Amino acid sequence: MFVWEGVSEFVAVAESESFTAAAKQLGISTAQVSRQVSALENRLNTKLFYRTTRKVSVTEEGAIYYRHCRQVMNGLAEAERAISERRDTPQGSIKMTAPVTYGEQFVMPLVNEFMLQFPEVEVTMELTNRQVDLVEGGFDLAIRLGRLSSSSMMARKLASRTQYICAAPMYFEKYGVPHSLSELRQHNCLVGNSDHWHFIESGRERSVRVSGNLRCNSGFALRDAALKGLGVVQLPDYYVAEDLANGSLVEILAPFREPEEGIWALYPHNRHLSPKVRLLVDHLAKACGA
């Protein structure tokens, strides 16, 4: 009869690693969350959390229990979606994630347009450059850039992007222009999330490890550094297309440029793609493709 009591509170604490944050998420008091979790531990006769004044973390038993509870809660959410989707007008919640900069600049404006068209749809967007677990996090949809590493996801290509190696004319005037991949190692390369840049040489993929005096996970910051002549940068077209067109940046090593990469919509294999999510993916594909 009481088997479900405390489970929602337990999952919220496990995911937020905080009783206070879990209480805020659930809209109840911290004391109530603590009571429910303690009652659950007593019922299971198992300690689910390690508690200190600074941190809350799951025990080994807590991690096992969390995985099962998360699956059950995802199943309940799926059941609610299945019911809501029987209605004619798309409504209900969509939880999605996208990379920070691309999400801010391109995805969210399109999502906002979609919500204007379907005002009964609620969207929770997590902008992060981490590769979050869609199933464990209960995500309906993810936008990913470039090569896909996971085969456990269904993917639909929304658009393409091209990576350019470029620098400001003032940099080349001072340090010269590299004409081969081996020469690239002699230059100050402005590094983003990876210090390996990928190329095509003699029809085969080649990875070159680069280095420089700036490492930053912001494409806008790297573009600004390149425009100011600090070094050579590799960035997608949506950062540098205008600069390349007006000559503020100059592309190099064009014969070695990789083919276009995909921009993808991903969703779990075991997650039914609901009509509202399918409509959103269609909307994104149409706009991104254009």
Rank of each mutant, 00 (worst) to 15 (best):
V3I: 15
V3A: 15
V3R: 15
W4D: 09
G6T: 08
G6H: 05
V7N: 07
V7H: 10
F10M: 09
F10C: 09
V11L: 12
A12P: 12
A12E: 11
A14I: 05
S16R: 07
S16F: 04
F19L: 10
T20R: 12
A21G: 00
Q25E: 11
L26Y: 01
G27S: 02
S29T: 13
T30D: 08
A31D: 01
Q32M: 05
S34T: 11
S34M: 11
R35M: 05
R35D: 06
S38H: 13
S38G: 15
S38K: 15
L40Y: 09
L40G: 07
E41R: 02
E41I: 00
N42P: 00
N42V: 05
N42L: 09
N42M: 08
N42G: 08
R43F: 13
R43D: 13
R43M: 13
R43K: 15
L44P: 04
L44C: 13
K47C: 04
L48I: 00
L48M: 04
F49A: 03
F49N: 03
Y50P: 02
R51A: 01
R51K: 14
R54D: 13
R54W: 08
K55G: 03
K55D: 09
K55Y: 09
V56N: 08
T59A: 10
E60I: 09
E60C: 02
E60N: 13
E60V: 14
E61I: 08
R67T: 09
R67D: 13
H68M: 07
C69N: 08
R70K: 15
R70Y: 04
M73K: 07
N74I: 11
N74Q: 03
N74V: 04
G75L: 03
L76A: 05
A77S: 12
